[in-house]
Simulated scan of single mutants.
Amino acid sequence: MAELAFRKFLPLFDRVLVERLMAETKTKGGIMLPDKAQGKVLQATVVAVGPGAINQKGVVQPLSVKVGEKVLLPEYGGTKVVLEDKDYFLFRDGDILGKYVE
């Protein structure tokens, strides 16, 4: 079902569509955390990428992330996009701080 939503939406240029990971609702000891105590989640999974930015010579520069990779996002920024009643965020490739290597 989510794949169908991405067929209807393709990021342009150097933009990356990500889905933020869910915030932890319990501590390791099993204590439930209230909403205000939960930190903002800065990790996300890449779900769609654009073709890349065009440089001054007219050559398309590929993006540094691929679909399925886990990335670290800045605390602020991004554009919220709602697809199939789920929240996603759109960032520029240069705004992504890093990616996790497995």
Rank of each mutant, 00 (worst) to 15 (best):
L33S: 02
K66S: 15
K70M: 13
K36W: 00
T25P: 00
L21D: 14
E102P: 14
I31R: 15
F9V: 07
L83Y: 12
K8M: 10
F13C: 05
M1V: 02
L73A: 11
A5I: 00
L63G: 13
K66I: 02
V67H: 01
L10C: 05
E3S: 11
G77A: 11
F6W: 10
V60R: 09
G50Y: 08
L90H: 07
G52E: 04
I54S: 10
R20H: 09
D93Y: 06
V49Y: 05
A44H: 09
R15N: 13
K86T: 01
N55W: 14
L83R: 10
G50P: 05
A44W: 12
P62M: 08
T79P: 00
R15Q: 15
K8E: 10
Q38D: 01
L63S: 07
L33C: 04
V47Q: 08
E19Y: 07
K28N: 05
G98D: 15
E24Y: 00
V71M: 09
K40V: 00
G29S: 10
Y100G: 00
A2S: 09
T25I: 07
A5W: 07
L73Q: 14
V49S: 12
A5Q: 05
I31N: 10
Q43D: 02
E75K: 10
V46N: 13
V49P: 05
V65C: 11
R7M: 10
I54K: 15
K28G: 04
V71I: 15
M1G: 06
V82M: 08
K40R: 14
T79D: 10
G77Y: 06
V65A: 07
L10I: 14
K86F: 08
G98T: 05
D85Y: 02
L90A: 09
R15G: 02
P51F: 11
V16C: 07
V41Q: 14
E69K: 15
D35G: 03
N55G: 11
V65H: 03
V49G: 08
Y100H: 06
K8C: 06
T27L: 04
G94H: 10
E84F: 06
F13H: 12
G98A: 14
K86C: 05
V46W: 04
E3H: 04
V82S: 04
K86G: 00
